[in-house]
Each structure stands twice: as structure tokens, then as C-alpha cells.
Design a protein around this nucleic acid. Structure first.
Lengths: 137, 137
DNA sequence: CAGCTTGTAATTATAATACTTACAAGGTTC
DNA sequence: GAACCTTGTAAGTATTATAATTACAAGCTG
């Protein structure tokens, strides 16, 4: 797992403040990464339909209200792995266990992943913003 | 996330068949990794109290019944990360968002992680063994 | 046009993961 | 006890994943 996901949430939180357009360089300063990384993540969010940008013009804008954007939307947008739990790749097909373990684990891991995603779906960007204000005060 | 976790489940599944002692080299053949990796994972499982081994003597034995071992026990045993969702490490402390985003995300990610672990806790090694038999037949 | 922006490909560092070698510690067999 | 197994670990290497950086085309704005 890389940290694109949390970077994406950070970017969206900045946009949700609504205080004028922010360049990728400004955002990069807040996130603590290279501006290219910000533009890359922003690109994914745009392709997922969460925000709008335009070549040459500073800033990005959310395409819908913050309470209509869940952390699961963001998770899917950044192309996060299908399951965070990794199955080893080369079990021996000639062993009864090795031949079937991948299939069995895929099933179990999918269920665990679904539980995690379900929790993410219950949190909106608006709630993140609220929590940030809470902490800041 | 590395694949030690699924390797651990694989090893325990082999032990749970009860068909004689298996050397780390035999197990490695089924799992598809180097014997040293098997011994390393076995070591973690031993330190977590899930199985017993002895230097010089072939094989390992479970310390309790398979229906008393959950996948969460195994997850904890292999020293898996506290949260699979990674927070970016260098947000700008001088920015209202950057200063608090880690804290807020840690909280949300912990909840998602708890949901995942809760699901793992509901699955036992005995059920994995059953599923393997099911597939094999 | 000059100077900014975003979008993206390509390259280089860096870090995480996996593999392998090596060997000590200990058991078993003859 | 000697030869030959085993497990337990440390240390080094290779491979891969991640992040940072460079470079530049495409496009807006004054």
C-alpha cells in the first residue's frame, strides 16, 4: 500500500475549504510531497469524477458537495488494491493445500476487505473537514 | 503489506492435517518459498504461542485445537501493521489542514482496520481446513 | 508573446520485500 | 561418539515497489 490514498484525502480537504484556487505547488507544500505527485493524484480524482480541473488554469473544484463524497469513493478513485491482504503467489499445485489455498484465502480476504470498505463508506469528506476544524480549535 | 500472513495460514493448514511431521523444506515446497522463510514465519507463530517446535527435531505441532485459532490470532502473530491504510508522513505543520490531517486519518483508519480485524476474528483455522477439503473434493 | 498553469512520460533515488548463503545449536541414528 | 539430519538466526544480495525528480507538451491569462 502506498500513501496516495491519504494524500488524496488531504487534497480534497484543502479544496473543501473553498478559500480560493490552490496550485499544485501550494498543495504540495501542505501535503509534504512533490508537486508532480499532487498532479498525479489529482488526475486520478478527476478521472473518478470527484473534481474538475483545467489545463493551464490554477486550482481544482469539487464536482459535488462534501457530504456526498465518501472515503470509499476516494479509495476507489486512487486505484487502491482489490484487497490489502496479500496472498502468496507460488503455492505448489501438486499439494492438496497448495492447490486450493489461494482460492480459499481470496474468499476470506475479500470479506475482510468488504468490512473495511464498508466502514470507509460511512465517512464523508464533510466529516473529515469537521474533524479538522475540531482539532484546530 | 508482505505475504507472511497468507504463508502463515498456509503453514498452519498443513499442520492441521495431522499427517506426520513436516520439515521446513517440505513445507517450503508446498508454499513455494525458501525454507528459511518458512522457519522465520514458524518462529513468529511459536513466539505467539500458536505452535510448538524444537530445535533439531522435525516438525511443529499446534498448541490448541484448530477451532480455537482465529485468523486474527494469526494476523497478530505475524506482526502485521497496526493499520493497513498508510498516512503520508510529512504534512506541513504550519498549515491548518497539514497540522491535523494525520491525527484525523489515524482515527478513521483505525476504525476501518478494526472492522477488518473483526471479520478475521470470525474465521477459524478449522473453517479454513473445511474449505480446503471442500475445494479438493 | 511572456509567464504562468496542468498533464504526463521517463528517469533516478530510496525503501520495502523476498531470496539466498552461512552457520550455530540441538536431536537422531548407527 | 561421529555422521547426518533438523531448527533458529544473522547477514548479505537481488528484486521489486514507492517516492522524488527532471523534462516538456498543452493550454490559460494578462
Amino acid at each position: 500500500m502506498n500513501s496516495e490514498y491519504s494524500i488524496a484525502v488531504h487534497i480534497l480537504s484543502l479544496l473543501n475549504r473553498g478559500d480560493g484556487p490552490h496550485s499544485s505547488e501550494y498543495i504540495a507544500g501542505s501535503v509534504g510531497v512533490n508537486p508532480v505527485v499532487v498532479r498525479s493524484v489529482t488526475g486520478r480524482l478527476r478521472r473518478a469524477g470527484l473534481l474538475h480541473t483545467q489545463r493551464g488554469v490554477t486550482g481544482a473544484t469539487l464536482t459535488r458537495r462534501a457530504d456526498q463524497i465518501t472515503l470509499l469513493d476516494v479509495y476507489r478513485a486512487v486505484d487502491a488494491p482489490q484487497s490489502m491482504l496479500k496472498v502468496h503467489q507460488k503455492p505448489n499445485p501438486n499439494c492438496p493445500v497448495g492447490a486450493n489455498i489461494q482460492c480459499v484465502l481470496d474468499d476470506v480476504f475479500s470479506q475482510a476487505q468488504a468490512a473495511l470498505e464498508s466502514r470507509l463508506e460511512q465517512v464523508t469528506l464533510a466529516e473529515i473537514t469537521s474533524a479538522l476544524h475540531e482539532k484546530a480549535s
